[in-house]
Simulated assay, not measured.
Amino acid sequence: MSDDTFTERLRLARPVSGDLDALFPIQTDPRVWTHYPSLRHTDPAQTLEMIERWRRSWAEAGLGSWVARLRDTDEVVGNGGCTLLGGRVWNVGYRISADHHGRGLATELARAGIERARAIDPDRPMIAYLVEHNTASAHVAEKLGLALVHRGPDAGNPDPSVVRLVYADRPLTLAQLDAALR
């Protein structure tokens, strides 16, 4: 029996190493990384390490990033879900193939991740961690019911002018905000 999660249009599955060939083209597409180009993958080893991080998150927290496929065609269209940051906050995140932007898939995927995270541990705050010029992601965070709780420099970003935003479902303690910003 599969432990896949289904939304209206997506089948969400835990990642496996065999997902590399479908995920690598998404992770290398400059259109997907418009808002943070220095994170764009240039080597399949980067994508494989990302898959392994997701798998560790599933093993340690009972939740992580899913591989998202269209239910009607089984095409891989991205990844996303919730991961635990610093043992203190759930971080909802997603990456959708540029060919599928603007169709609400990110919101659909993120909602599924939030539902699962709240079922596992509803007492942990939910956050979305994004850069200010990514207005599409900010719009998704707001549709998910998250509100802006932090705006500041994006430490470690090669572009010093970039501003980091943290949205959350509730006020954060300093320790929770610190976990979100690491």
Rank of each mutant, 00 (worst) to 15 (best):
R55G: 13
Y94G: 03
T47I: 03
L20M: 04
G104C: 04
R151F: 10
A45Q: 06
D29N: 14
T42M: 01
D121P: 02
G93C: 02
R182C: 06
Y36H: 05
L146G: 13
Y36V: 05
A13G: 10
L174M: 04
D21P: 01
L39V: 01
E115Q: 10
R116M: 15
L172C: 10
L39C: 01
P37K: 00
F6H: 06
L20I: 02
T28M: 07
D19H: 10
A136P: 05
G104D: 11
K143V: 08
R103G: 04
D3Q: 09
R71Q: 12
P30H: 03
D74G: 02
L181D: 10
R151V: 02
P30Q: 01
L85M: 13
R40Q: 15
T173K: 09
P37M: 08
L70N: 01
P37Q: 05
G18L: 11
A112N: 12
P44S: 03
G152P: 06
L130Y: 12
H133F: 08
G87H: 04
Q27K: 02
R95T: 10
A117M: 09
A180K: 06
G104T: 04
L146A: 06
D3R: 01
L177K: 10
N134A: 05
G93N: 12
T107Y: 03
S65C: 08
H101L: 12
A112S: 15
L23P: 06
D19Q: 02
